[in-house]
Design a protein around this nucleic acid. Sequence first.
DNA 1: GTGAAAGCGCTAACAT
DNA 2: ATGTTAGCGCTTTCAC
Lengths: 335, 335
Amino acid sequence: MARRSSAPSAHDVARLAGVSQAAVSRAFTAGASISEATRAKVAAAAAALGYRPNLLARSLITGRSGLVGVIVGSTRNPFFLDALEALSQRLSRAGQHLLMFTASSGADADGLVEDLLKYRVDALLLMSASVSPALAGRCRDQAIPVIFFNRRPRTMKGFASVTGANRAGAAQIAEHLIAQGYRRPAFIAGIEASSTSREREAAFAERLHACGLPLFARAAGRYERPGAWEATRALLSRDPQPDAIFCANDFMAFAAIDCARHEFGLEIGRQLGVAGFDDLEGASWSTWKLTSYSQPVDEMIDRVMEILLDPDRLADPPRIIVEGELKIRDSTRRV
Amino acid sequence: MARRSSAPSAHDVARLAGVSQAAVSRAFTAGASISEATRAKVAAAAAALGYRPNLLARSLITGRSGLVGVIVGSTRNPFFLDALEALSQRLSRAGQHLLMFTASSGADADGLVEDLLKYRVDALLLMSASVSPALAGRCRDQAIPVIFFNRRPRTMKGFASVTGANRAGAAQIAEHLIAQGYRRPAFIAGIEASSTSREREAAFAERLHACGLPLFARAAGRYERPGAWEATRALLSRDPQPDAIFCANDFMAFAAIDCARHEFGLEIGRQLGVAGFDDLEGASWSTWKLTSYSQPVDEMIDRVMEILLDPDRLADPPRIIVEGELKIRDSTRRV
DNA sequence: GTGAAAGCGCTAACAT
DNA sequence: ATGTTAGCGCTTTCAC
């Protein structure tokens, strides 16, 4: 077997098979008009040389790179790994591929988007990362769909988004806590600027209010474990203590439970109700048994794919909300 | 601002700036011979049009795509998210980008690699995923470095790898358990075929032996939580029970602790010692306080980058072992 | 320092 | 059904 220093081209295959270079291209294009005989010849030659069409070159012509850019904001939250895996699977099946970037939390992801645009990505998916309105506008001008996942563009109208049922879920949790007899409910926010956290908090407070109860206290946990731990400590250091805490996501709720148990010796459920959002795998683990409103990752990614694959969606980008379900576990059972 | 349906090209910029298209190219190439005056003219025109060089077109000429293909095997383990994040950061800094794939565990990732090769990736990183020797050979023939991360190619010689100190770490854990007075040490393997799991088990058993103790029992947990839970249950159902369990990684050790506590009512540390490998963030959480041998992700990724960026490494691909450190926590303290 | 021209590997229109 | 040709957007000689 000859050692080649670079990949064989369609030309090489054509020469070996005794056909034109265009024939090689056709052999690798589904539905092209080519006889079975030549296709076989080409296939044989291609196999012999280990030829694979250069998708980068193809993209120059077709205008589609087959690349979907993804920017992941908060990488510590397992929720995004799940989403990433689901996405990568579905993209592969659709002949698309995933160009991944991680954004150091907080800052604009503009620099990363610039890079992505140089690769002529077919679409851009922002997983709880944000982009300046100017750049987002540029993407739209170049007909690149921008999809916000688990986050909604603040100032900008006209961008697609797929999120969980933040408001409905938070309201259900409020009702559930009240029904369980908790009377001093607190909230731990994620990042204050995050649409997700704000929607969950607003709906939680509203529903409490509607039931005649104020939001007893609040703190922010930055979507991180240390942040959530601190927030929990702050809340539980009050007198009187809150008797229930709803955390903006499960990842922070795990920290809240651990802090309440180990630093304050509280019995979760009976002495302190804790609820989260996402229904991560860990929520059902015996350590936490966390009540949580689910975000069905697979279904959410299905919606993303629909937007991605339907070019018409560009004109009127949908804002999709995927319903979840309240999973009640021991962390909010008083008895 | 005019709405364009596709991205502006160097030609457009050239026309607007009143220079040749080649000049535009030079303006965007570091160290090209171009006057400051024309560079400024080009920059202005480019900014006006929102021009960004098409990296896919560039790659046709240069032969380098700037893309690094990564195949992630077991996505549930947070270890790989950490690694992925570190990798993506460092790659961005080096002007490379990450084309990510997830392999459904078990099977060969050959299909995915085929896709990657079509994108002419500059290198291939396998994170606990495996590839057929035939395909790996093809990569080498096309001068594409293949790097195994946290896993060693079984049958194939001549591929680069970066792994933690599996043998040294497992041996230290064996010694530590014995020193703590545990006398019936068991092991929970990951996937039996995995080089990582086998190395850890072999070294663990060997060192126990050297200290005059047999490996009391073993089971396999497939690197998953349910698998590890089952394995723990099987081990703890024996009579007599093992008094210590070393798990092939932290992720399984968390499950082992939860199972031992909640299903067998054991007090971790005093009644059952548990140790893991990786030193995940969760190992230090108060829920688990898990003794673990660390795998320094950042350092491991640094080594990967060195291999990636040094083309000479292709000739003699290094097998790098990154030393970690034994972190002793309450899960192996008898008192 | 700058432009003209060739060509990277491919697809698509146009012949035949 | 197949070959010929043009050109996607860029880098890189080669003249000047």
